[in-house]
Design a protein around this nucleic acid. Structure first.
Lengths: 397, 397
DNA sequence: GCAATATGTTGGCAGCCATAACAATTCCTC
DNA sequence: GAGGAATTGTTATGGCTGCCAACATATTGC
């Protein structure tokens, strides 16, 4: 069973909405779960096979999917054509960071077609970020084959993004306050742009294409250079809150004797568990993820051990809160939190088992994130694909 | 706009599901928002008025709604009949507590028709609770008019209830562990029984019929004799988690130097903010809510003041966590937390404004719960009405 | 009393999905 | 290698749903 957003309206539905919903469901399946035979789609949706034939036919006509002949089958019966999401439908992904901007091109189905990380000397301003992203998107676009269809741009941003208009309410580490980044970028590239918090976007990506495949309720926590972000998937759908800011698990109390956080509170997870302290004791400076894992694995310094234990203890507090609050099936840890987690096998699981209530603690698992460098490309692209996936027919060219 | 659960399937939908969804939507509106004219239903659902006529006709035929002539109108045009949920469709509500069991009868539309609170000498065992509830339900049922239709029993229980089978996983204050209470009660009364956590049920009730009317994203926190329970409404629907245990905000860390909680963790909200400490300093013993409010209002003791401030400080920690995590429109405080909140106007709001992130803190309001003694009756009845509301046609007698 | 307005009512229609019968293709067995 | 079983694509038909348009009805305001 896959984690699928429902596209049905909460109020009155008519026959058009019905069709739209079924088209959306099919496209969602082949996009997120990969190629699927028509017979598999029939089983998954519980629709009639004649209906599936018609719906798939429409998706093919719309240029959103194609059918290929199956390889060898090992069951009796007439072979069922495989429906594949058309990866020539492309979204661009943008991820501004403290000292770099990454731009990528992602095909329907979650294939990362292109990816470039551009280092910026200092923290980019909105104008600089728009300019860099625009140049790179135009370059990538010109390199794409002529028959690709570009649906838009998705941006994963380390900050709070207002859902209704895509305005960056606050990106503390970039120094952006109330910046209409989406609008600026949209004007510059001539494509629709949608922006969201990087951790929320990461949660979506891991839940659809990574460690959380098939899981409908999960909590994702990511540790990066600019702090700790979180994202939550509830019944297969991202938790957004009223204005789109939900999921900030990095700003929950873990230490009453902690220091003041930039958010105004004290003792936040983000102030106690930081990548920089970990790198300090390890003597590293901006390593790749593999280097970090390796450095932790080979280190025999008690100072390193202590710092890891200290951070794990605080991380466990947020996780026990999360388990009691969300009762998730899965917790996914990304960035240096994944490294911390694997540095001391069993520690986090033990802490959760001891500190959570009997019910919610019964069935939760903790795993490390999987998508690595593709994470935010895939996640941001999902933002751009959202409208198409919700209504495949009317978003057509 | 009302907070309505969607009943559309997340996967394939056919024409039957469409009809079911529309019937469910209409019944949901008149149940939760009260009587509505057909023309209002037309606007709300965006369905055609001929369709509304057919759907309403079916609900009337099913005995779930009735139409009454409108009073005086003040607009031109033909008067539109008012559609009213049939309050002769009845659910029973049961709420076992430490020293009492409350049983009620609730009509469709959320009308509490009957309510009896029975004190028990000591904490009731499962067998005692089933026996007491059964006797009272049978008595109430015999007093109801012959033409009422009973749909089932809902139970609001101070403990963790597994969703899939209704087993009480753990009710610490009742001393119940892994008790199949739902099944026992169902066998005894001969009606379907569904059970859930009392605070979750309270959240649903306040969101549909109380302080949270029309709000789609809210956090509810209730303080009672047996601790602090929470419930969260996300996009109009109760947050359940994978196994139904979600919402336990009472077991989030508020004090690193706190004491060990029965849940296994230390410094939980539930150990720091307790009704008993508040009553101790006030010199009260099991007061009604009004008495508690009054006692706080007239007290001039600095000891009382200090205790209230102390508890508010810790409560604010959980609330800032909740605001950062859920980005809700509204926080609803029930039980003695409501009294605490009103004891010091502005304190909680100020703490939230100071300690939360810029985005999520922008638009959140804090209010006191409204439903008082009706709360758990209405909430538990909603559990019993759920199947009927989701599929009005097939749940018919 | 009449026009304007809003809404109920009715008959016909388009579209969606289900059904059933048939055709196609594969695997399995002898 | 031939035939049967199993599975699925294909096609024509039909039921049901909601929409539409025209008409009927009831109220307000002049």
């Amino acid at each position: 069973m896959s984690a699928i957003e429902t596209t049905a309206r909460s109020l009155g539905n008519n026959v058009d909405n019905l069709r739209r919903h079924n088209l959306s469901t099919l496209l969602g399946i082949v996009h997120r779960d990969g190629p699927a035979s028509r017979s598999r789609l029939t089983k998954l949706t519980e629709l009639n096979r004649s209906t599936i034939a018609a719906l798939v036919g429409e998706l093919v006509t719309l240029g959103l999917a194609r059918e290929v002949q199956p390889e060898g089958s090992r069951t009796a019966g007439r072979p069922s054509p495989i429906v594949v999401a058309n990866e020539k439908v492309v979204a661009f992904a943008v991820n501004p960071e403290i000292n770099a901007i990454t731009v990528g091109a992602v095909g329907l189905g979650g294939v990362v077609l292109d990816r470039v990380r551009m280092h910026t000397g200092n923290t980019p301003s909105v104008v600089e970020a728009v300019a860099l992203a625009t140049t790179e998107i135009k370059r990538m676009r010109s390199r794409l084959r002529k028959d690709v269809r570009v649906v838009g741009v998705g941006v994963a941003l380390p900050g709070l993004v207002r859902r209704e208009d895509g305005v960056v309410r606050l990106a503390p580490h970039l120094g952006w306050i109330d910046e209409p980044f989406s609008g600026r970028l949209s004007d510059a590239v001539g494509l629709p742009v949608s922006t969201a918090n990087d951790a929320s976007v990461g949660a979506t990506a891991e839940s659809r294409f990574g460690a959380g495949r098939g899981v409908r309720d999960l909590v994702y926590l990511n540790g990066g250079a600019s702090g700790i972000g979180g994202g939550v998937i509830v019944e297969g759908r991202p938790l957004t809150g009223v204005t789109g800011y939900a999921g900030e698990l990095g700003h929950t109390l873990v230490n009453s004797a902690g220091i003041l956080c930039h958010c105004g509170a004290t003792g936040c997870l983000e102030t106690e568990v930081t990548q920089s302290r970990l790198l300090d004791v390890l003597g590293l400076d901006d390593p790749e993820m593999d280097e970090l894992d390796h450095a932790i694995a080979v280190s025999e310094s008690p100072e390193v051990r202590d710092e890891i234990d200290r951070q794990l203890t605080f991380l466990a507090v947020t996780l026990r809160n999360a388990v009691n609050i969300f009762n998730p099936r899965l917790i996914v840890l990304g960035g240096f939190l994944g490294a911390l987690f694997e540095a001391s096998p069993g520690t986090i699981e033990r802490a959760i088992a001891e500190q959570t209530l009997a019910g919610p603690g019964d069935c939760v698992e903790v795993v490390r994130a999987q998508l690595r460098s593709r994470l935010l490309m895939i996640g941001a692209a999902e933002l751009a694909f959202a409208a198409l996936l919700a209504d495949p027919a009317s978003s057509a060219t």
